[in-house]
Amino acid sequence: MHAPATTTARAAALSLSVIGLASGVLTFASTLVPSAPGLDLVAVRWVALATLLVAAAVAALPWRRVPVRWTLLLVPVGMLLIGVHNYLAAADAYRYGAFFLLLFVWVGLWHPRGTATALSPLAAVAYVVPLVAGSAPGHAPWTVTYALPLYVVTGEVIAWRSARLHEALRRLDDLARTDPLTGLANRTVLDAAGRGGPGGGALLYLDVDRFKQVNDSYGHQRGDAVLRAVAAALRAAVREGDVPVRIAGDEFAVLLRGPLTAAEADAVAGRIGAGLGRLDVDGLTVTTSMGVAWCAGDGVERLLARADRAMYAAKDAGGARLVISAPRAAPGPG
Rank of each mutant, 00 (worst) to 15 (best):
M1L: 10
P4Y: 09
A12N: 05
S15Y: 00
S17G: 12
G24N: 11
V25N: 06
L26H: 00
V33C: 07
S35A: 15
A36D: 14
G38T: 10
W46P: 01
V47S: 14
A50V: 05
L52S: 13
A56V: 12
A57E: 05
R64T: 12
R65I: 00
V66K: 00
W70Y: 14
T71W: 09
T71I: 05
L72C: 04
P76T: 01
V77C: 06
M79S: 14
L81Y: 07
L88R: 14
A91Y: 06
R95Y: 14
G97T: 12
F99M: 11
L101V: 04
L102T: 11
L102C: 14
L103E: 11
W106I: 07
T115W: 12
A116P: 06
A118F: 08
W142C: 00
Y146V: 15
Y151K: 06
V152N: 08
R170D: 15
R171V: 13
L181Q: 06
V189E: 07
G196W: 02
L206P: 05
V208M: 02
V208D: 02
V214W: 01
D216M: 08
Y218T: 14
G223K: 09
A225Y: 13
A225N: 10
A229K: 12
A229M: 06
L234I: 05
V238M: 02
V238S: 01
E240Y: 08
V243E: 10
P244W: 02
R246Y: 02
A248I: 13
D250I: 05
L255Y: 04
G258Y: 03
G258A: 02
A263Y: 00
E264G: 14
D266N: 00
I272L: 01
G273I: 06
A274L: 12
L276D: 04
V286P: 07
V292N: 07
V292I: 12
A293C: 03
A296Q: 12
E301F: 03
A307D: 01
A310F: 02
A314G: 03
P327L: 09
R328K: 03
